[in-house]
């Protein structure tokens, strides 16, 4: 566990210094939100689509973040040194997952605020807990899948496009679950709060399953090629 925290701290420090989140991902994500608002140009339509647009933007942003987290490991063969540093691969996985989770958490909070400001979405006091739970569980799920599939393509040519091709279909249940649950948190007429919590349960199961799968598979995935 201590090694995982050391890896997470390193990843966060590298990202803080590189300012990828601040300079590239956050502007990209906010721009997408704005463009959706311009493209849909209809208040009722935007309100209905707000939750889906937030999580679709999160999906694309996750790909950017995950690509970067593996790029820094491969550009000077740091991953190879890491694997020969008495570090258990499972600790590398959870370290990278935790660092990605923190960044995605920040981004998702910004995007939810963006939806409230740009799309006029509202969250009643009773739905705040639901919204916080959605954001935490969905961010963990995104980080789990991103870290796992980032490892799958880390040593491949054309990994940028491959990551999108492999991860996006897997993330479809998360997109649906997070969108529906957020719709409930935004007080939509088409879904009640109880159903929103049911979707949160799906998000939690999704996050746990992919965390466990990543922990089990990461060592084999990181095995150096001949």
């Amino acid at each position: 566990m201590k090694q995982a925290l050391v890896v997470a701290r390193k990843d966060l420090l590298v990202e803080f210094r590189a300012r990828l989140l601040l300079v590239r991902v956050i502007p990209f994500a906010l721009l997408v939100l704005v463009l959706f608002a311009v493209a849909l140009d209809s208040e009722p339509l935007i309100l209905r689509a707000a939750s889906g647009l937030v999580w679709l933007t999160m999906l694309f942003s996750t790909l950017l973040l995950v690509q970067r987290t593996y790029d820094v490991e491969t550009q000077d063969a740091a991953l190879e040194v890491l694997l020969t540093s008495a570090v258990e691969p499972v600790n590398v996985f959870f370290g990278k997952l935790f660092a990605a989770f923190v960044q995605l958490l920040v981004l998702s909070v910004l995007l939810v605020f963006g939806a409230i400001v740009l799309y006029g979405a509202t969250v009643s006091g009773s739905n705040v807990v639901l919204l916080v739970t959605i954001v935490v569980s969905a961010a963990w799920g995104l980080a789990s899948v991103g870290t796992l599939y980032g490892a799958v393509v880390a040593n491949m040519n054309g990994r940028d496009s491959l990551l999108a091709l492999l991860a996006l279909p897997v993330l479809a249940p998360l997109l649906i679950g997070a969108s529906r649950a957020t719709e409930a948190a935004f007080g939509s007429q088409t879904i009640d709060t109880a159903s929103g919590w049911a979707w949160v349960a799906l998000l939690a199961v999704f996050a746990v399953v992919f965390s466990a799968a990543g922990a089990a598979a990461f060592g084999a995935l990181m095995e150096p090629e001949a």
């Binding site: 590298v14 210094r17 590189a18 820094v72 740091a78 190879e80 020969t84 060592g219 095995e223």
Partner: peptide
């Protein structure tokens, strides 16, 4: 078993294994 030997190894390859931002 190739994995278990790695915990005993300190490797310095042609590349340095450093993080540029640190």
């Amino acid at each position: 078993d190739r994995a278990s030997v790695r915990r005993h190894v300190g490797l310095l390859g042609h590349r340095n294994g450093l993080y540029d931002e640190l």
